[in-house]
């Protein structure tokens, strides 16, 4: 047995670390929340209220480095990059959120059906998931976008159809684990129908996990939109999105003009990190073991 002095010393070290960890966690959450709030307000309020034309071309002011008049600089036809970034983020976030929600709904439906039905429907659905998962998802995404005219909706469909797989797996595993709990047995013994067990006992158990998966997917979907647009397959080049901005700035980067590439890229990084930070906090709340640690 350790003597009292070392034991108390260890306790103190542990406490200090816990306090530090908790406060950095709190600041990370607050910082992420503030950034997300600012970005959401910007993309919601600037386009309708600011009397500015993001497409306004000013060839006399092309490729100006960042200044007070143009904080993010201007692009190769003299459009203000700060305004373009706000509009780009608006499109990227819209694509990200819609694609993540669609992917989560599809994934939850497939996973819940597979888990709740079991037997051959389960095997069939999971093999379907395996088939989708066996193709690199960016390749599959490119294939889907290539079938349509460039625009927002093909990108949403492409990202959603390639990203429901992990949600389906998570939800199925969760349903399987819930289904074998004695409280489901008790409900069956109490005369509950399949529908009642699914709606009252299984679905409420998986929804928090599915919601978390949706939020975690938003940044990923934003990146996918950017990747597709960067490859010239996503949105048409005149429509500002973070991907198209970086793509159209490629030429000027080689000429030494760094700002048209840096700022849209930075926007994507900041937005995704902030959303991921919030999702991480949510995950910590959901995980009961972590939560009990926090309470102690």
């Amino acid at each position: 047995m350790a003597d009292t002095a070392t034991t108390s010393g260890k306790t103190e070290v542990w406490r200090t670390r816990a306090v530090v960890r908790r406060s950095t966690r709190a600041w990370r959450v607050r910082g992420s929340a503030a950034v997300v709030l600012v970005l959401v307000l910007a993309v919601l309020l600037v386009p309708p209220f600011a009397q500015l034309d993001q497409q306004a071309v000013d060839l006399t002011a092309k490729l100006r480095p960042p200044s007070w008049a143009h904080p993010f600089g201007t692009d190769d036809v003299g459009r203000d990059l700060l305004l373009r970034c706000v509009y780009g983020l608006r499109v990227s976030l819209l694509v990200g959120v819609v694609a993540a929600v669609v992917a989560t709904v599809v994934g939850t439906a497939v996973g819940a059906l597979a888990g709740a039905l079991g037997g051959w429907p389960d095997r069939l659905l999971m093999r379907l998931v395996d088939v989708f998962a066996s193709v690199p998802h960016l390749l599959l995404g490119i294939f889907i976008v290539a079938m349509f005219r460039p625009g927002v909706w093909p990108v949403v469909v492409s990202v959603a159809l390639t990203h429901w797989l992990s949600t389906a797996r998570i939800v199925r595993a969760e349903v399987l684990s819930l289904r074998s709990r004695p409280y489901v047995d008790a409900a069956i013994s109490g005369g509950a129908s399949r529908h009642r067990v699914a709606v009252r006992h299984l679905l409420p158990g998986v929804l928090p996990q599915a919601g978390l998966a949706a939020v975690l997917m938003v940044p990923h979907a934003v990146w996918h939109e950017s990747a597709l647009s960067f490859l010239g397959l996503g949105l048409p080049t005149h429509q500002a999105s973070l991907g198209t901005l970086v793509q159209s700035a490629r030429g000027s980067l080689l000429a030494g003009d760094w700002w048209p590439t840096l700022f849209p890229g930075l926007c994507a990084v900041v937005a995704t990190l902030a959303i991921a930070g919030l999702a991480g906090a949510w995950r910590e709340r959901l995980n009961p073991r972590r939560r009990s640690e926090l309470m102690l």
Binding site: R181, P182, Y183, D185, A186, A187, S189, H201
Partner: peptide, 11 residues
């Protein structure tokens, strides 16, 4: 039916 572990048998 009453099970052994009340925690697991209650939603």
């Amino acid at each position: 039916v009453v099970f052994q572990q009340p925690r697991l048998s209650a939603d």
